[in-house]
Design a protein around this nucleic acid. Sequence first.
DNA 1: ACAAAAGTGTTACCGCTACACCCATGA
DNA 2: TCATGGGTGTAGCGGTAACACTTTTGT
Lengths: 243, 243
Amino acid sequence: MKYNEKTKLWESPYWHPAVTTDAVVFGFDGEQLNVLLIQRGLEPYKNMWALPGGFMRPDDESAQACASRELREETDVSDIYMEEMQTFSHCNRDPRERVITIAFFALVAKDQYHVRGGDDATKAKWFSIKDLPELAFDHKDIVALALERLRQRIHFEPIGFHLLGKEFTMPQLHNIYKAILDPPENDTKLGDRRNFQKKMLNLGYIRETGRKETGNPHRSPKLYTFDEEAYQQAKKIGMRLEF
Amino acid sequence: MKYNEKTKLWESPYWHPAVTTDAVVFGFDGEQLNVLLIQRGLEPYKNMWALPGGFMRPDDESAQACASRELREETDVSDIYMEEMQTFSHCNRDPRERVITIAFFALVAKDQYHVRGGDDATKAKWFSIKDLPELAFDHKDIVALALERLRQRIHFEPIGFHLLGKEFTMPQLHNIYKAILDPPENDTKLGDRRNFQKKMLNLGYIRETGRKETGNPHRSPKLYTFDEEAYQQAKKIGMRLEF
DNA sequence: ACAAAAGTGTTACCGCTACACCCATGA
DNA sequence: TCATGGGTGTAGCGGTAACACTTTTGT
């Protein structure tokens, strides 16, 4: 696709689709799982809530770079865990023209970021997944897929940590698992804190820091960190997590 | 993006990338895992082997529809299990222009298809994953990712069946698992046929057909089928496979 | 009848579930 | 000192890894 200086248009003998990225950013506040949304400042779907994202540019190094850039520009959130999820490519997703969207799935330690709107008078805000507003485009479907993917992922991959700070307590981590997978009331397999803790520590890649979290009205829980190196090692050996 | 009748070009004020789909099609011959490749008839990388795929057209209903179409056109393979894998979007993947590729991952009962080259003098051929030729573009990376994905997938999802016909024997299925995951020689967990069979049948969604496979020089193994309905049921209950 | 491969059965152990008790902290 | 929540321990059960024997089939 070439830029024509005279006509000020991009031209090609072949059809090229528009490509955007959208990110479903999950955050956890200690109680609920939340999704980061922005309020659209432009048509179409003006003023409606939508996923952070936008059109890919020729100078974006990759789709993921594009997703990160848009997120940073629109919400001031950066340096987070992000992975590609799936593309959305049906014909009438966008009223303007045909758009192919590469959807990403991201996890962030919610309280470590100062979320604000972007430059162009857009607002960014966290919404509980149990109380989402109506969303622009087919973003409802994208969020639904992300939730499903998150549940699948957390069963077998240690990604819950990304929703917390570098140091975290066992009860915090346990709350995340309960919020995402919400086990039945009587379940002791995942629901019981003691069994949960044992299983986690048995995996071998969660290290005690020696420090404790203070300021609680009760006994101070120990602080742990995720040991990436030990995890990679365990993965090589063929060890597999299951919750 | 609009078509200009005068200039015969597609034009847009915004940059649009070219988008292709590529499919990594796995087949199993009873011994080895194979990948379906086509020999390129055009530049770039003329005569080199590559993954079946091609540019997305405005009349393709979705990316997956595009991948299916290209596969059918180039290799005459259709109606197979296919799922989206990941996009590839770095800047210099294609010498012509920047191309974003949506890569798919597919499984097929190899001997049930008459693989032939497409219209434009291209050839299609199966290659053992242990003996792949040099590949065009970054297709080597795409195949590597597909293999990794296949291994991950087969641990927790019953997709091995898609590499076999509607009816299959336990030894056949076992061979697939061994070929994909190749367990160490002394492993009895996955390597032992008796334990493998028990685990599979315990899942509850593999039904005996009552028939047997004849023509072997030895005892005739029973034929089984995969019961999709029972599987969906088991999945709902929260049952999870693990190998 | 024999060889090769598939079907079926059994035991012992490990890990997880289920449950109880003790300890630290702030009010 | 009391209430709340977090840390640690243990018994019993179930599943599965490890292993053996019998049955079928074609030559």
